[in-house]
């Protein structure tokens, strides 16, 4: 504003030729912001919706013929309407709503995953910090981590003689490896500068762990935790199919045994959504915790 005013004063004859352009009046900012937000949301939401609609249509067209092995989406919805509309019923035994199955599975995951997060970070710190621990343990980890989750199940059933702790153990042993390995890499990658700072300030090992190590390695740790939660969710579904009882894994197996194909499809849908939410949850937590640790 000042600039333009000064300009008018100094260049009087030219001012008529090149008049100062009046600023366009500001649009009401609030509706503007809403419009932009709506546009951004639409850009994100519409393409997947279109793809989903198209895929459902293709599925419907392929599976609606008589004698098709899998039900079309319309039949899936008709068959499972009760399960969708009332996820909270409980008729005793394993005849429960999907909410209870999912929550039983999630409880197992919460338990097994928490154990593996604690043990995994602790072992990762050890392996990352000590060269000898790495030399001793790393080959072992590299072999053990390739064992498929279900291969652990018979052994853990033999050890625990019960389904519940066995399932939790399978989750633990499946999700711990990426947590260990990523934590170790994070610890090993702590810049020497931070170690020097800690040395000059004379932090003791405990303070070094809490104030330097964990924040510096947090991005790596959360990468491991995120892979870990995905693996635990994979493992629990498979393990539950074998151990039985309440849980979304056994629900799927049970539906297969009673030929309720539509219920399987519904359960798969829920499994996918829950897995996605779990992944986002850990990613969001990671983002929140590591908001300040970006390298500068």
């Amino acid at each position: 504003m000042n600039m333009s005013a000064a300009k008018i004063e100094t260049v009087t004859p030219a001012a008529t030729i090149a008049p100062v352009v009046a600023m366009t009046p500001k649009r009401p900012p609030r509706t503007d912001a809403y419009a932009r937000m709506a546009r951004e949301t639409a850009v994100r939401v519409i393409p997947p919706l279109v793809v989903i609609a198209l895929l459902t249509l293709v599925w419907e067209l392929i599976c609606r013929r008589a004698g098709s092995a899998l039900p079309p989406p319309s039949k899936v919805f008709r068959d499972t309407k009760e399960l969708i509309l009332d996820p909270f019923f409980d008729h005793g035994g394993i005849d429960k709503g999907l909410f209870w199955h999912l929550s039983a599975s999630l409880q197992r995951v919460a338990f097994g995953y928490s154990l593996s997060a604690i043990a995994g970070i602790a072992l990762g710190v050890l392996v990352g910090q000590s060269v000898w621990a790495m030399r001793g343990l790393d080959p072992l980890f590299q072999v053990l981590r390739t064992i498929p989750p279900l291969a652990w199940l018979p052994l853990s059933l033999a050890a625990f003689r019960d389904g519940q702790p066995s399932a939790i153990f399978v989750i633990f042993i499946t999700s711990i490896w990426p947590i260990i390995i990523n934590t170790a890499v994070g610890i090993r990658n702590i810049p020497q500068d931070y170690r020097n700072v800690a040395a000059v300030v004379q932090l003791n090992p405990l303070e070094f762990f809490a104030k330097i190590m964990i924040p510096a390695a947090a991005p790596y740790i959360f990468t491991g935790l995120r892979i870990g939660i995905g693996l635990s969710w994979l493992a629990i579904i498979a393990a539950e199919m074998l151990i039985g009882g309440v849980g979304i894994g056994f629900f799927i197996w049970d539906a297969w045994n009673s030929s309720h194909i539509s219920e399987i499809i519904l359960a798969l849908f829920y499994v996918g959504i829950v897995g996605f939410v779990l992944d986002r949850l850990i990613a969001g937590l990671g983002k929140f915790v590591t908001r300040g640790t970006a390298q500068n």
Binding site: P191, D193, Y194, N196, V197, V200, K211, I212, P215, A216, A218, T290, G292, T293, A294, Q295, N296
Partner: peptide, 14 residues
């Protein structure tokens, strides 16, 4: 014997 490091070495999360 406090050191001022060449690349400042401030802890980015603090």
């Amino acid at each position: 014997r406090a050191v001022v490091f060449q690349n400042h070495s401030l802890l980015p999360w603090l």
